[in-house]
């Protein structure tokens, strides 16, 4: 089994295509929609894909053939440890436990669990958290 997290960018004219259906039906992939956003310019979908390794590869290949831009979800959060005071306000809103305390109450960040909802960025009282580019 393989797992990948990808950012899909759709052109305006592709927005009505049922892309995720084909990934499930034709490539037997388990999809986890982490974020979805449609603007007047484009559509963005952050997906967690899991399935057989060759299927994940083929699925991504198929997406590219459809002219969907596929990029690995390389970004995460950057937590500025100089600004962070380890208060915990961000842990109150983190939906996946990506931001949590270690045993000595130091704030920790687990990029694997992060779905980049950025609720923490809003909640942080000292602006220590931002999206990494």
């Amino acid at each position: 089994m393989a797992e990948q997290r990808v950012v899909l960018t759709f052109h305006r004219w592709q927005l009505d295509k049922p892309v995720t259906y084909h990934l499930v039906k034709d490539y037997d992939l388990v999809l986890n929609i982490l974020q979805a956003k449609v603007t007047t310019e484009e559509g963005k979908l952050v997906l967690g894909l899991s399935g057989l390794e060759q299927n994940v590869e083929k699925g991504i290949e198929w997406l590219k053939e459809q002219q969907v831009i596929v990029e690995p979800l390389a970004t995460g959060l950057s937590v500025n440890k100089d600004s962070c005071v380890d208060c915990g306000a961000c842990t109150a809103v983190c939906p996946t436990g990506a931001l949590s305390f270690s045993d000595d109450w130091t704030l920790g960040y687990d990029e694997e669990k992060c779905i980049l909802c950025l609720a923490c960025e809003t909640a942080c009282p000292v602006r220590a958290i931002e999206e990494k580019f």
């Binding site: 380890d86 208060c87 915990g88 306000a89 109150a92 109450w105």
Partner: peptide, 13 residues
């Protein structure tokens, strides 16, 4: 219900 602190225990220590 998950709980979260707003004051820093680490810095209080």
């Amino acid at each position: 219900i998950p709980t979260a602190p707003l004051s820093s225990l680490k810095r209080a220590r």
